[in-house]
Design a protein around this nucleic acid. Sequence first.
RNA 1: GGGGGCGUAGUUCAGUCGGUUAGAACGCCGGCCUGUCACGCCGGAGGCCGCGGGCUCGAGUCCCCUCGCUCCCGCCA
Length: 616
Amino acid sequence: MYRKDGNPDGNPYRTHTAGELRAEDVGERARLAGWVSRRRDHGGLIFIDLRDRWGVTQVTFDPDSGEVFRAAEQLRPEWSISVEGEVARRPEGNENPELPTGEVEVVAGSLRVLNESLTPPFEVDRERPVDELLRLKYRYLDLRRGRMRENIVFRHRVVKHMRDYLDARGFVEIETPLLTASTPEGARDYLVPARLYPGQFYALPQSPQQFKQLLMVAGFERYFQIARALRDEDQRGDRQPEHTQLDLEMSYTTQEEVLNLVEDLYVEIVEGLSEKKLGAKPFPRLTYREAMERFGSDKPDLRFGLELGDVSEIARTSEFKVFRGAVEGGAGGSVRGIAVGGLGDLSRREVDELATIASLGGARGLVDLKVGKDGGLSGRTAKFFSGEEGEALRAALGAEPGDYMFFVADAKDAVVFESLNRLRLHFRDRLELADPEELALCWVTDFPLFEWNEDEGRIEPMHHMFTMPREEDVELLDSDPLKVIGQLYDLVANGVELASGSVRIHRPDLQQKVFSIVGIDAEEAERRFGAMLTAFRYGAPPHGGIAPGIDRLIMVLRDEPNIREVMAFPKTQNARDEMMDAPGPVTPEQLEELHIAIRMPTRRGPEQPPREAPNV
RNA sequence: GGGGGCGUAGUUCAGUCGGUUAGAACGCCGGCCUGUCACGCCGGAGGCCGCGGGCUCGAGUCCCCUCGCUCCCGCCA
């Protein structure tokens, strides 16, 4: 950043960063500014590791320097200082190969203490686990630590790459409002009371969905935005109240074009910026159906096998009631299984544990069979499967001698898939089947446009209600909407959904039809999406797009266990900001202005002491 | 909304069957030390054992309640 041609602006703090001095700089005068990372006081000689964003440089203080030396004796970790001195080669044998600056040191000629520091609540310069609440409360100190700094800087590089990539292809970055109307995603909105409209509220956007489509109507052709998306739902490791997505949309485009655009971008990011090993290229494309049948999931982890096998036909004629019952009646049930090697002999208890894992996917039981050295089957249910039948099961799963076969039978395909998916992921972790260095990206396409919501007894959009059906399926909208395939696509990496998008409906008549299928009548459609429906009557172009999640991408590229590790200021699982102490109460005057009265929950709720309102 | 785990020094943790003065490491403070880079050596301070209640002669330890954090299910992306 600063070079040895000097200090043209006369910066009083530094002429160089702490990460750039090398052997060739020996003899130069240098001034460094940063934090005291560590002090090694030898009585007659003091070493300071001076840290800034760019690196660490060793500074030495010699007793000959008198006053400066005595000042250095007072230094403590995390003090902010500026040091000026000569760059010297370290004595023979005292180089530190761990540091890029390890061949040299700065011999301090002067020292300015810019700011002292309290003793930090945790050790900033040591990579030790610290309670996350404490880290969040002192996030500014946590962010001084190497791993977090690298994550945040890496994130910047990825986002910058996205901007440059899209700019070079004619995309325009456009901001859309944060204060807007409720959006049509399924999640709960964050609401903001409208002072000028008593009883009315803005909603914070769950995504810029309608705006991006309106920008297509507006003729920008290619739009993108690094957009914040807010949803008032419970947290998970990969979910936060606000997350960031690369929102993009294109006019006169096709699914193929969107996929290729994003694929090339992700190849550049993974190969050019990250240390991950990219899986198959071009990215494998699986239809939703194929992903479910092979992996039991619409976000499959392709780094390992353990693919599902369908044994429904064998089950149909089986003596085993559990199997036969699942496929009888033609209600769409199935029997499927996976073959797993390397498990040795499982105890009854271990098998029960596996059944519990499967039950989380809805399975009412788990059928386990072990393939013996001679190919014969053993297990509690082995007696139901004659030699021929057992052989057929074995062949269907491709099970080898010594493998276990696990089967789930259910009248609902979805239960079979979800249960086996959980088992598959369990074995991935237990048997370490997935290469942690690999990033296996794939596309999942051809999702159904709608799904049946069991609880509410109605049809819902799988993605959102602006998704275009496949051309050949438009007729099915009337006859059998659940069979309609949408022009819908997800980008998946190692079992994590990274992006989701679709070609949109641009014709008002088709949009109306989709609304009515999901139970929105013309009046409600007009009320909720009036602007967009009207806009579509002014020559809306065909368009489509996608919204890759940035937090999750950085998370998988950096091997972090959750997205809080790649966000500068995340919230806790209970959606609190411990550093800023938000949310918090406001003054009665503020509430008055908003025409809001608080009615506290009676049964149970967050305790609200009558504490003083903050000075705003 | 439901379930699991955790809560002991500034930090990360240990703490046996309920038993005397609650320990370790790192950090912090003081002293010594001229080539360290996890510097070393000597000494020291530091505890509402999350909060409240109960059983008990006696509770960090057992029971109940509650608060906080975290993971999972639901929800959601």
